[in-house]
Simulated assay, not measured.
Amino acid sequence: MSNQLMYYVARILELYSYVLIARVLMSWVPDVERTSIGRFLVKFTEPYLGFFRRFIPPLPLGGGYLDLSPIVAIFAWHFVTVGVLNVLSWIL
């Protein structure tokens, strides 16, 4: 039973990391955020990504800006995933 729980928790956390990556890739294509899938991804990921945007300002790059907060957020999500799985394995 504990192995199944670990498996499902790991898959859910992994799925969210894929959603984060999809959101970052989606930001490179201008009109994708206006689709129903795009609106869902924005609504689902913005609370997490917005937290990092408050602390990491975009870097000026030529005529625009480079937002590094999604990169930091994905790395942080990896550490959260590893931490949650380690705590669960210790508890179970």
Rank of each mutant, 00 (worst) to 15 (best):
L61K: 02
A22Y: 09
L59V: 15
F55K: 09
W28P: 03
I71G: 02
E14Q: 10
G38P: 01
G50D: 10
Q4I: 09
S36M: 11
E33N: 11
R34F: 13
R53I: 00
F52R: 02
N86W: 09
I21G: 06
L41W: 10
S69G: 08
K43G: 06
E14C: 09
F75E: 04
I37T: 15
V24E: 07
D31Y: 12
G83W: 09
P70I: 03
L5D: 06
L68Q: 02
I56G: 01
M1D: 04
F40L: 13
Q4G: 11
V24Y: 14
L25M: 14
Y65Q: 05
K43Q: 13
K43D: 15
I74G: 00
S17V: 03
K43H: 14
P60H: 10
V87D: 07
L20R: 08
F52M: 06
L88K: 04
T45S: 13
F75D: 02
T45D: 10
S69M: 04
R11L: 14
R23A: 06
P47V: 01
S36Q: 14
R54D: 09
A22C: 15
A10C: 06
V9E: 12
P58M: 06
I71D: 00
G62D: 08
G83K: 07
P60V: 10
F44V: 13
G50F: 11
W90Y: 13
F44E: 04
I12R: 00
A10V: 02
P70E: 01
H78F: 14
V19D: 05
S36I: 12
N3Y: 14
Y65S: 08
G64I: 01
R23M: 02
V84A: 14
K43E: 13
H78K: 02
E46P: 00
R11V: 11
V24R: 01
D31H: 12
G83D: 12
F79R: 07
L61V: 11
G64N: 03
I71F: 09
S69R: 04
L92T: 10
T81V: 03
V87P: 03
V42Q: 11
N3F: 11
R54L: 12
M6R: 08
I37M: 12
S36C: 06
D31M: 08
R54H: 03
I37Y: 07
